[in-house]
């Protein structure tokens, strides 16, 4: 039972990271920008927030929790949006290939983040020595009254505010895309920029804004990972990158609908962590008893493939069902320029 609760808790924390990444990416992709730099911008968001609060906490004796949170959010959003701006400038203005640019952004983001992360570790006196305790505890604070509600409290209320913010953001993004005028215009650009242009919509402006804001939101995922899961330290492992790719996969899994990322992200979180909580068990089916063996280091890796396999299956199913609504935005990945002769 305890291990099940731990699995769910771990899944929700990782799911939240993925959810931010995916919601941001959906907004960008709805404008036709296939930004494969999601892992990169998540790295940027993570490291920028860490640098920001590190210097703030070191500059004052009594760091204010609210200011800490604001600094972290703003730094993460701006740094990631800047990554999106690089992507936008290259792909929208210079019409570079989106796939190549996105992959480059991922490499760039992880390089920059690990470089500054290393510097920061050195400044703090060694790996694991960075201390942003005030910020980290602000991000990890849960409401005690609810947390103590027994096992429901542990599953539903043992998290920091970003977990709930992600859900609210996904719902808001869903409503924005389907119910607002700007959302309608944005979707039109991703589907058919020529028609949107003819209808008097500023295609370039929308694409820039959607890509930059989307990247900023994705960057918040990286920040949440650093502040909550690693408790404000920096390690040069590639977890952020693998979560970033899961976010890209989740966009497809959610068939470009932000509301689907809520349950999709948690499902991906469970699939991600299932190897760690897997125990040797016997399942009694009445007529036969199934023996499920414990995982070795090698079989663990097989389990880590599950989220990606699920995404492939979803891709196969959705492309097999010819319903237009399940397809990616029609102009996704294509540069737009006005027809002229």
């Amino acid at each position: 039972m305890d291990s099940l609760i731990s699995l769910i808790q771990a899944a929700i924390i990782f799911g939240t990271v993925i959810m931010f990444g995916a919601v941001g990416e959906i907004i960008a992709e709805k404008s036709g920008s296939l930004n494969l730099g999601v892992p990169g911008v998540m790295y940027l968001g993570g490291i920028a927030s860490l640098i920001g609060v590190f210097f703030y906490e070191n500059s004052t004796d009594n760091p204010n929790q609210i200011i800490c949170v604001i600094i972290a959010l703003v730094c993460a959003f701006l740094a990631a949006a800047l990554g999106g701006l690089i992507f936008s400038f290259l792909t929208i203005t210079l019409r570079a290939n989106q796939n190549v640019t996105g992959l480059t952004l991922t490499i760039f983001g992880s390089g920059v983040a690990n470089f500054f992360g290393g510097s920061l570790n050195k400044l703090a006196g060694g790996v694991g020595q960075i201390s942003v305790a005030t910020t980290s505890s602000a991000f990890r604070a849960s409401i005690p009254a609810l947390y103590n509600l027994g096992f429901i409290g542990k599953i539903l209320f043992s998290y920091g505010f970003m977990v709930y913010a992600a859900i609210i953001l996904a719902i808001f993004a869903q409503r924005f895309l389907t119910k607002s005028r700007a959302g309608l215009n944005l979707r039109a650009i991703g589907e058919n920029p020529g028609s949107a242009d003819a209808a008097g919509i500023n295609v370039t402006l929308y694409k820039y804004l959607a890509t930059c804001i989307g990247s900023g939101i994705s960057g918040l995922g990286g920040m949440y990972y650093v502040m909550d899961y690693t408790k404000g330290t920096w390690a040069n492992d590639a977890t952020i990158e693998s979560l970033g790719w899961l976010a890209v996969a989740l966009v497809i899994f959610a068939i470009w609908k932000p509301r689907n990322t809520i349950w999709g992200a948690y499902l991906f979180g469970i699939l991600y962590w299932v190897y760690a909580f897997w125990r040797e068990t016997n399942v009694d089916l009445g007529f036969i008893t199934l023996h499920l063996p414990a995982l070795t280091r090698r079989t663990q890796e097989l389990f880590k493939m599950i989220p990606y396999i699920v995404t492939i299956i979803v891709l196969v199913i959705t492309s097999h069902r010819k319903k237009k609504e399940y397809q990616p935005p029609e102009a996704l990945g294509l540069p737009y320029f006005r027809e002229e002769r």
């Binding site: 005028r181 309608l184 039109a188 919509i201």
Partner: peptide
Amino acid sequence: FKLVDIFTAAENIVLGLSGSRVL
């Protein structure tokens, strides 16, 4: 035609017009 395929007729007609933020 300059129309967005997966939109309804009404959505295509109001596309790009200014007006209240919420449709």
